[in-house]
Amino acid sequence: MRVLLTSLRLQFKQSLSRSTYRFVIIIQPILNTILLYFILSNKNFVNVGEYLFVNVSVMNLWSSIVFSSLSDLTREKRMGVLGSNFASPVKFQWIYGGKVIANLILALWSFAVSYLIIQYVFDLNIVLPNVYTLITVYFLLLISFTTLSLFLSYFFLLNRQAIFWINVLEYPIYLLSGIATSIQKLPWFLQIISWLLPTKWIVGLLHQIFNAKYNILTSANVYGLLILTALYGIGIIVMNNIMERKILVEGQLEVY
């Protein structure tokens, strides 16, 4: 537990010291909001502000995942610190769990950034749901994205082309999350993939919470997210074993 906290605290420092990361959590949300605003500004429906907010937020979350699970890890690989983390008495997944959570906590600030822009710069009214709903949703986002991000970290840890693939995945993920078009319009096999993405459920959930009368406890999206979190949790355990095997048996960790 203490390790998790130390890992978390130092990750805050490291991330914030990187201008790329400050860009991801502050500038990027602003740019995405502006771009989507202009693309959608002819759209004639009442809650365009909320629509913008949901889409931009999910795009930002994905950017932060890309950042935390991949470019950060690649960096660790390049600095050669994976070995000394791996060979320490602490379980690898706790160490990297701390790092991922730290990045996500920072990344969730981008929600605030896009909210402020939409509400005050573009003057589109967003009616926030009550505090409890917000906290619940925040918590759900945090755990579901932590597990996804950690899962992806493992997946790409020993992959040389990690950065390449994750960049390539950006727009497909947006599409599959239902940002540009309704998921029902996609072919069935793509729909199945989209069920496996927390972003799909988050888009649904975020749309729902702006309906004041909606009780999120009855939302299928909440349960979808919980189930996915559990699934990715199992995935992490499996991946951890695979990774240990790859390092110890196949000798794929290039310590030297």
């Binding site: 130092l10 420092k13 490291q14 010291s17 990187r18 600095m79 050669g80 610190v81 070995g83 000394s84 060979a87 310590v255 030297y256």
Partner: peptide
């Protein structure tokens, strides 16, 4: 514990 030569095994931004 181990020490490998070179500049690896450290967090450069800390």
């Amino acid at each position: 514990n181990f020490i490998y030569g070179g500049e690896r095994d450290l967090y450069w931004r800390l």
